[in-house]
Design a protein around this nucleic acid. Structure first.
Lengths: 159, 159
DNA sequence: TCAATCTGATTGACGTGTCAATTATGCCCG
DNA sequence: CGGGCATAATTGACACGTCAATCAGATTGA
């Protein structure tokens, strides 16, 4: 009985629609963000974290944890952002291995420029598109999918 | 009145959950596919299209249309797949500009190896995670979001 | 003290995606 | 015919992501 049938045509269509639509939404928001501020979603995430940190500065590893990225990803992204003067990197005084990421003026400006239009876009593209019931359902669906990922029906050696 | 408020904290949480969960699902499926067959989702999409084409061959531009990719993306991906002997490229006899993409034996084998586990994974990770109502709601949410993307509340010069 | 080890961060190789430019061929019309 | 334009596909430059390897500075334990 654990061997149920393959997904039906309808189920496959919904699955595909679900994922592809998520991508479209993401892409549309990213395009608007880029147009309004020159920032990528990654840039925005970094600047948001920094702007909420005291002094606009943060240890690189703390940043990684805050936005949920791998450390090497952070390193690469900071390298690109540093070239554009959005952030600076300084040596950490309390731990010579460490690096501190500092919000640069251009970064702060771009972030402030970006925030309001970005929030408005999220409302327009996502929130306004759905009825309150659909919005709630979206949250429940996400939760159900996460639960399934955390506890797969048939463990296959994947975390 | 067209200037409604920014999204609430809850709305933002749902929005973020929705997109991030989609990514997690995608990543989990991709990891399983990779493990079971050595194929990436892109590889799978290409091989699926080819395996459904008569003779396992297809014009490169037709392939692009079929799977909804940009042509340059197809070119790059085919280059990588060709190096792994999953496909071959031949000159098109009817149009000397054109290229025909041909399913290679290794590609056919990998695809057949991949299909059943992949469909089962989709069922386990996505379909089985949701109640029938949630599945239906997921379809409706995707449709609503697409409709919104096609007809933005406040056009901002974006297609 | 100082060697083994742990940890913070960077780096390099590579897959993947976009955009703009390029190449080569087909095609149409004066 | 032949110049001009459309089309097929590739290419190059770059952003972004992962993984594995590396490097330097902390830590700690005989």
């Amino acid at each position: 009985m654990s061997t149920r049938r393959f997904p039906t045509r309808d189920e496959l269509r919904i699955w595909r629609d679900y994922l592809e639509t998520g991508d479209l939404v993401r892409a549309s928001l990213a395009a608007r963000l880029q147009r309004s501020s020159g920032l990528s979603p990654g840039d925005y995430a970094v600047l948001l974290a920094l702007s909420e940190a005291p002094g606009g500065r943060m240890r690189s590893s703390t940043l990684a944890e805050t936005i949920g990225w791998e450390r090497s990803r952070v390193s690469h992204h900071l390298g690109r952002m540093e070239k554009r003067d959005l952030i600076r990197r300084e040596n950490c005084t309390t731990d010579n291995r460490g690096a501190e990421v500092v919000l640069a003026p251009a970064g702060q400006a771009a972030f402030q420029e970006a925030t309001r239009p970005h929030l408005r876009d999220i409302r327009e593209i996502f929130v306004d598109a759905l009825t309150p019931e659909q919005l709630a359902a979206a949250g429940e669906i996400a939760a159900a999918l996460r639960a399934q990922l955390a506890h797969p029906t048939a463990p296959r050696g994947l975390a």
